[in-house]
């Protein structure tokens, strides 16, 4: 099976600082892949480059057979590439419902938008209760639900999530991961960046381990869970 996402030799610089160095990564259709690593390993920079928010200094990104280098960030979501950004990035002064509608912005006027909205509300009943509230008034966990719901409104083929567990209470983390698993089971391809390596490895098929901007290990998630190096460094 050909890869949905094929990254080769990706480098990202911020000024003179190199955040990502010669990264190779691939995600096949329907796969659940996680990118784990310590703080500052370059995971978020990688996702940002894939989403088009930062311009890579080298390397190629092929998605669905298309070279993404010439595709601006705003056109990528229309191709099914969605990123739930680090820190959620909800529009705090827009209402919950407006945030969700923003998720479907690129397919404005498409039919079935309200069915989609209902589906997301079905997934997160909390959001339905608070649909007219400003998103900034939600709790951290609710904002994460909103960010994920908003990404679903875009009908993604490849959903990239950046640290969905960050800053959430353990119970909320469990719920969020249950939702992520359900999304993947519905056929959405997943690229998950997480600091909580155990959770990520438990729901994913394959893992890449990143250290100082490089991939240092790639294996099936199950074997990573047993790998002594991974265990000592990331699973505590």
């Amino acid at each position: 099976m050909t890869a949905l996402l094929q990254v080769e030799g990706l480098s990202v610089h911020y000024g003179g600082i190199e955040a990502v160095t010669g990264l190779d990564l691939e995600v096949r259709q329907g796969e659940r892949v996680t990118l784990i690593g310590a703080n500052g390993a370059g995971k978020s920079s990688t996702l940002k480059a894939l989403a088009g928010l930062v311009v890579p200094s080298a390397g190629s990104i092929r998605y669905d057979g298309v070279d993404l280098r010439t595709v601006p960030a705003w056109q990528r979501v229309g191709r099914g590439l969605s990123l739930v950004p680090e820190g959620r990035g909800v529009f705090s002064r827009l209402s919950v419902e407006e945030n969700l509608l923003m998720g479907a912005y690129h397919r404005n006027g498409a039919t079935g938008l309200y069915e989609e909205l209902e589906r997301v509300y079905g997934l997160f009943t909390r959001l339905h209760e608070r649909r007219h509230q400003a998103a900034g008034t939600l709790s951290g966990g609710e904002q994460q639900m909103l960010a994920i719901g908003r990404a679903l409104m875009a009908a993604p083929r490849l959903l990239m999530l950046d640290e969905p567990s960050m800053g959430l209470a353990p119970l909320m983390v469990e719920r969020i991961f249950e939702v992520i698993r359900n999304i993947a089971e519905a056929g959405v391809t997943l690229l998950l960046v997480e600091q909580n390596a155990r959770l990520a490895l438990e729901i994913c098929d394959r893992a890449y381990v990143m250290e100082s901007g490089r991939i240092v290990l790639t294996d099936s998630a199950a074997r990573c869970l047993d790998n002594p190096l991974v265990r000592s460094a990331y699973l505590g």
């Binding site: 990035g89 002064r93 827009l94 998720g103 690129h106």
Partner: peptide, 21 residues
């Protein structure tokens, strides 16, 4: 939708781009 996109861009242009704006 244009107005929503304007407000979203004002609040967070990077995320607005992720939404296809």
């Amino acid at each position: 939708a244009l107005g929503r996109a304007m407000r979203a861009t004002a609040q967070n242009p990077a995320v607005a781009q992720l939404m296809g704006v």
